[in-house]
């Protein structure tokens, strides 16, 4: 029972980070119809920059974190301006390939600057665990869960009430109508990419903090978010929020109970098995907009 609860808790914590990074996916997909395969590299890059600022330049963590966010936002805008804007109107294969190319490029930059070894990440959370019922829970998990929850609420409010948020939803609904209402669609695209880069960087810092270490392999997290957003529905923010914990719990349960049977690796493959099932049964996910096309 305790094992089960532990798996459940791990699942919720990892899943909450999935939700956060998934939010970045959905924001980009909703407004620009691009699936960003470079999300994982955004995550790693953000975490490395935060690490370098705190360890090498001795910047206090809070300011380092803020600087990371500023940098990520700029990088998102730059990516959109230099790479994605020339691709407007190109076929899907080009859009997929350009983000795959971008991911190779960013991976190379990360490896070239920071190498491939695992680097210890500073303890941003207090180390001693707290007890919830029978379970010892590390404080990092709680803080991570809490910050993701706060962020998701903030973003929901942002999309619901602020001027830019409403403009983003309008653009997602119809680019032509938004243009004729005086919304700068280009600005919205840039905003979407910078939001995606910022949430990825936050996710990267939280993940590195929870793991206590950082290396390039963490970029795989970006690919594992794809099943999450497909489960929730590619164009649904609520879907990403709900899908994260579901997928997190699922993969941890699979890892906990199936790994002894199959000899490891079940945790990595389980989300993709679920992904195939969703795609064959309900391709538009739990909350996605259903487009019926019979060919």
């Amino acid at each position: 029972m305790e094992f089960f609860l532990q798996l459940l808790l791990n699942g919720v914590v990892v899943g909450s980070i999935y939700s956060l990074v998934g939010l970045g996916f959905v924001v980009i997909y909703k407004s620009t119809s691009v699936l960003n395969f470079a999300q994982g590299e955004f995550l790693v890059l953000g975490a490395y920059i935060c690490l370098t600022l705190t360890v090498q330049y001795q910047v206090p963590f809070f300011w380092a974190f803020l600087l990371t966010l500023v940098f990520s936002a700029l990088m998102g805008i730059l990516t959109e301006r230099l790479i994605l804007r020339p691709m407007i109107g190109e076929p899907v294969i080009s859009l997929i390939m350009v983000t795959l190319g971008l991911s190779s490029l960013l991976k190379a930059i990360v490896q070239g600057i920071w190498g491939t070894e695992l680097q210890p990440f500073p303890n941003i959370f207090p180390a001693e665990p707290v007890r919830i019922g029978p379970l010892p829970v590390s404080q990092g998990y709680l803080y991570s869960l809490l910050s993701v929850a706060v962020l998701l609420i903030l973003f929901t409010l942002f999309f619901k009430y602020t001027r830019s948020g409403v403009a983003m939803r309008a653009t997602a609904f119809s680019q032509q109508v938004s243009l004729s209402m005086g919304i700068s669609v280009k600005r919205i695209f840039a905003l979407a990419w910078s939001i995606a880069a910022v949430v990825s960087a936050i996710g990267g810092v939280l993940l590195a903090g929870v793991r206590g270490g950082l290396d390039g392999a963490m970029a795989f997290f970006g690919l594992k978010v794809i099943p999450v957003v497909i489960l929730g529905g590619l164009d649904s923010i609520a879907g990403a929020i709900v899908g994260g914990p579901i997928m997190g719990i699922l993969e941890n349960l699979a890892g906990g109970y199936l790994d002894p049977l199959v000899g490891g690796g079940a945790k990595e493959v389980a989300p993709f098995v679920v992904l195939v099932l969703i795609l064959t049964i309900k391709p538009y996910g739990l909350f996605g907009k259903i487009k019926i096309e019979r060919v």
Binding site: I83, P86, M87, E90, S94, M97, V98, L100, G101, L102, S103, S104, L105, L106, K107, A108, I109, Q111, G112
Partner: peptide
């Protein structure tokens, strides 16, 4: 030391430039 990342990076750059 950085020959492996250079390969990855040049590949990514070439793909992006070709697409654009």
């Amino acid at each position: 030391v950085i020959v492996a990342p250079i390969k990855t990076g040049v590949f990514g750059l070439v793909v992006v430039l070709f697409l654009i």
